[in-house]
Nucleic acid binder design. Sequence first.
DNA 1: CTAATTAAATGACCATTAGTCATTTAATTG
DNA 2: CAATTAAATGACTAATGGTCATTTAATTAG
Lengths: 222, 222
Amino acid sequence: MSKIERKEREKQLRRESIMNAAESVFFEKGLISSTMDEIAEKAELSKGTLYLYYRSKDDLYLGVICRGFDVLISKLSEAVSPNVSTIQKLLNIGSAYYNFSQNHTHYFRMFSFLESPQFHTMASKELLNESHNQSKRAWDVIIEVISNGIKDGTFRENIDPVQMAIILWSNATAIMKLKDRKDQFWIENLNVDIDTVLQKSNAMLVSTMLTENAKRFYQPKL
Amino acid sequence: MSKIERKEREKQLRRESIMNAAESVFFEKGLISSTMDEIAEKAELSKGTLYLYYRSKDDLYLGVICRGFDVLISKLSEAVSPNVSTIQKLLNIGSAYYNFSQNHTHYFRMFSFLESPQFHTMASKELLNESHNQSKRAWDVIIEVISNGIKDGTFRENIDPVQMAIILWSNATAIMKLKDRKDQFWIENLNVDIDTVLQKSNAMLVSTMLTENAKRFYQPKL
DNA sequence: CTAATTAAATGACCATTAGTCATTTAATTG
DNA sequence: CAATTAAATGACTAATGGTCATTTAATTAG
């Protein structure tokens, strides 16, 4: 019965068009200042209909976040696909994440939502799960690069790939968030270039991971 | 005229008692779920009166944050006051911040508020300024320790104290936040101990700061 | 001590907005 | 074409941050 299939497709399209509307409103106004009425208007639907497709405003927000993850994951995958050294792959990952934060700032910002337990009490289990899975997929890319780096002698034997992934990722995230902050009058006062800070912190962390042998081929600038 | 002084004192007391009420409600329910009515009830005042003393809910929240800063700053100051080596001072700062995040978790959590431009649009310039100043005071403690460390030969000459402070602080904050997250099912799955991660990341960063000479006296465990 | 004046506190009220649901409209089926 | 099912609507509710005319308390002047 193709009637049912068509229905299903149409339903999916509607969901997507609602997502599109939500995304553009959230991008423009952020979570708090966006209203369901505005999203409904942009989607050319009534508010009631929104709730036929998504359970809550938080769910819509999480849905957009999941789109952001799709973009990020694809960039990370690209970053590790070329046939290059472990070090180069790690550098590529760093660049990919940095470019993501610069070119998809809105998604990057929205990710913070997942970190404030405060703000996603209303989100549905399903969407929270989806976002968790995506987040895990992103981690796996990095963890694997580090694991391979240990095998191929780039990184020391006694480092833990998971721990190391957390350290590198957290560090990059924290510093990139700093760069994104608008109210950084004191940072301007202190006269720091955040890009330099990011670069240095990465170099510091990576340099302690390297084996003596690997250091002969790559010397991070501290 | 002591009448006026007394009035002033009473006004200050009222402000504080409102702050107390706000703090206990915010601690219990977080920013979003706390209502002005509830805070008013706890303060044994009407909602209208709250607005005679604070301009908005966000201002109340920021006020509580400033209290948190007071606590943190005093802990940091304590940490650097003993007459010990630079390394020990830096370790003390790390412990002080960690203990703060554990013993004053609510304050620690609230600090995130300052990082989401999203959520403090309504806060008054005065309170934002106060919080900025406090934040700067906290930074200064760390920056000074690092600066002195360079002078006394503990840290390399070519590191920038401000940059280094940002790196160490951001790293610690990011990882301590991770520990605080409730939805860390995937972290549990990955079987990582966040305390270890924090310790290692600190050791990695500090080890790259040390001069050859300093390394003879202190070997961070990587 | 009393009346007039000033200051402080109140809570009914307003505007906004997430979410609901009885009703309407459109599509499908027999 | 009528009957049935599915989809969409928007008026409505409840919650809540913030306001302001009114009331209450404190202070001052005579």
